[in-house]
Write a protein that binds this DNA or RNA. Structure first.
Lengths: 388, 388
DNA sequence: CCAGTTATTTCTGCCGTAGAAAGAATTCAT
DNA sequence: ATGAATTCTTTCTACGGCAGAAATAACTGG
């Protein structure tokens, strides 16, 4: 794979690639300031990326400025294609993306069961489907496949524990690479993957420190500090899913009263209204009823908003971040509960403290698959060899 | 100050100094492994420190090992002296320390009021007193003075806001440097300083990620991630001082029910028992009564322990650390409330999660002054010039 | 058209590091 | 005891990455 004239990307080269991916188009002189490098170094470092066709020199914009106009560097977003897949207990959702994890096509398959071979086959089918619907339609020009999964993942290859799939120690990357003829596959915890996507391409783009809260089947939590996504051996255990938020709230399935899952997750909220109404309710319906002013729905979503606000206060005060990104397929709650959340946040936070920046990523389910693609992109850059 | 043959310490030199300070005595080969440098580099980098007399080559220990025994590097702890000062609203406590912030002498003065000039004079008096009682007794061979203060500090020189002293925008470092004849003075928030001391010389020694919780006049919180103490513009506002921990707890002075200050601070705990007994109680007395089984004291300290356990769970889950250091002059609470705290921690934390490591620094008030000295030491190393 | 300004490239030298090999100080086996 | 093996440290040399200076380029505004 690696001939004699290529070498592993240096630290500076990797930082350059990251900066252009996140902030491009961006001029060499601006890059020099950000990375603390001289203009000379920028010329040298960017050359191999231009030669490879990964970077392009954009046209100078910004008229009116004095002096020679900059020729900003940017990634050629269609230089590579990636596929991101989110696997839940019920289905497989896939997207084909460009180099900035922008989804171009999507596809989904329902899962019949949790048998490993069957799931691998379903994933492979989704991969082939989204690949066929994008680019040349050929799998061979896909640069990588990312897989995101709710659970604990080791070394980006092995699923240690996935409660929704009832899996333990499944070498998913190996299995899928075999199935896909050697295409590089990377597996990561879903919240970690989504956090990476927000950091590189989403609402946390370029921020050195921020947290991510996801609302969906459960409540997820991710943290970025010093430009790095925090991954611990406990990542994927959903430790932020059972924070006590409301001493008079309902119980979750594990018996925690008013915990984040009971108060904020889609099943938690649906169950609360369902019990009150004596029938099953869909999540969309809860939100619609709340918007229409239905007293029970309003009461439940307002309590959820207050719980979310309190959770945000805990995060701001303990993780010491000034920005939180809200995402997940259940983030529609924000539409009806933003007021209650902001009120509770303000009550639990010092008046002199700098305000917490909140960003909502409302792409819903696609965000998860996009996160998987971001992991594949990160991996592809880590594998990159540049000519000397 | 800087002659032509000296130059600013390189990144590797600074990392070497830090590693030896934290882990010395330590052999060059072990240092090479830790810092990712070749043995050759270690020889080169450590030479200027040996020439300056800051490092010594220890005697080889550890018999029984095969091969040439290592001559471990260590800092010469008495090569420099530092002074650390903690300023509260009521008094000034100072210690003289060696290069590892080990306190050798101490002194304290009560403050009559909060007038800036008077406080500066009191600090200077404490500095002179501890200097006179240690080393040569001369101020001139003190390498630096560190000051730690409860409040918001800018640029390690200006006190932006110190509620206990009722100060705003006091250029304390400048004032004190003038008073002390140009001796370098560094000012830092007390929790940040204490956190640095724990990281370099204390219970968090060498850990890349951990949190610090202090119990004292208030409740403090510090965070270390990726080997760096997290400092935000909000540091010193005491944001973790009003976390809701017990919905049925007492109110704090700002009206938060069952917040960390109400449940855990020395005044909070004394007030609870004081109200119940109808008389003033000292903190020591509360702890003694609780140890003796006094029902009210036990009830109050047990509730405090439960609140502390819950706070630790929030920290572990949201700051994503696996270690917490407990410190502060009120940490004696741990003696009587450890059981309740650990129980509450376990209840709020997933059974599969890795256990939270807890370290108690029971040096009490001296820890605060030691923190100030650690800041002075950190600064002295940052100022260091090495011969080329 | 020319001066002023800013961006980028080319050239050269320096600094920090690694690699190889030598040297040093010990243990272990015979 | 003596040599072999092992491990640590130093010396020497070469190289990669970076900065600084100067040259070149591309624009604005008078």
């Amino acid at each position: 794979m690696t001939d004699a004239t290529t070498t592993e990307a240096s630290r500076s080269a990797r930082e350059l690639a990251r900066e252009v991916l996140i902030h491009g188009p961006i001029s060499r002189s601006e890059l020099g300031r950000r990375l603390g490098l001289s203009p000379a170094s920028l010329t040298r470092l960017s050359k191999p990326f231009l030669d490879l066709g990964l970077f392009v020199e954009g046209v100078e914009e910004q008229k009116g400025a004095i002096g020679r106009p900059a020729k900003p560097l940017d990634v050629r977003v269609d230089a590579r294609r990636f596929i991101g897949i989110k696997v839940t207990g019920d289905d497989v959702l896939g997207v084909a993306t460009d180099l900035r994890a922008t989804a171009q096509t999507r596809a989904a398959h329902a899962l019949g069961g949790h048998d490993v071979a069957a799931v691998v086959e379903a994933i492979a089918a989704v991969v082939r489907e989204v690949a066929a619907a994008s680019g040349t339609g050929d799998l061979t020009d896909v640069a990588g496949v990312g897989l995101s999964i709710g659970g604990n993942v080791a070394g980006r290859r092995i699923v240690k524990r996935a409660p929704f799939l009832e899996w333990r120690d499944v070498p998913l990357a190996d299995l899928l690479e075999r199935e896909l003829g050697g295409l590089p596959v990377t597996v990561e915890n879903d919240v970690t993957a989504l956090t990476t996507a927000e950091q590189w391409f989403g609402a946390g783009r370029g921020l050195p420190n921020f947290a991510v809260v996801t609302i969906g089947a459960g409540v997820g939590y991710g943290l970025v500090m010093h430009d790095r996504v925090i991954v611990t051996p406990d990542s994927g255990l959903g430790l932020a899913g059972h924070l006590p938020l409301d001493a008079s709230g309902p119980l979750c399935i594990e018996g925690h009263r008013g915990c984040s899952t009971a108060m904020l997750s889609i099943p938690g909220i649906c169950a609360q209204l369902g019990i009150a109404l004596g029938r099953e309710v869909r999540y969309d319906e809860v939100l619609e009823l709340a918007e229409a002013g239905h007293p029970l729905a309003v009461s439940i979503t307002t309590a959820a908003g207050r719980a979310l606000g309190r959770m945000l206060a805990y995060i701001a005060n303990l993780a010491m971040v000034d920005t939180v990104v809200l995402s997940g397929e259940g983030i529609g709650l924000w539409r009806v509960a933003e007021g209650a959340a902001r009120e509770a946040l303000a009550a639990d936070r010092d008046a002199e403290a700098s305000p917490l920046q909140l960003h909502v990523d409302d792409a819903g389910f696609v965000s998860w698959a996009r996160g998987a693609a971001a992991i594949a992109i990160e991996d592809a850059f880590a594998r990159l060899r540049l000519s000397a």
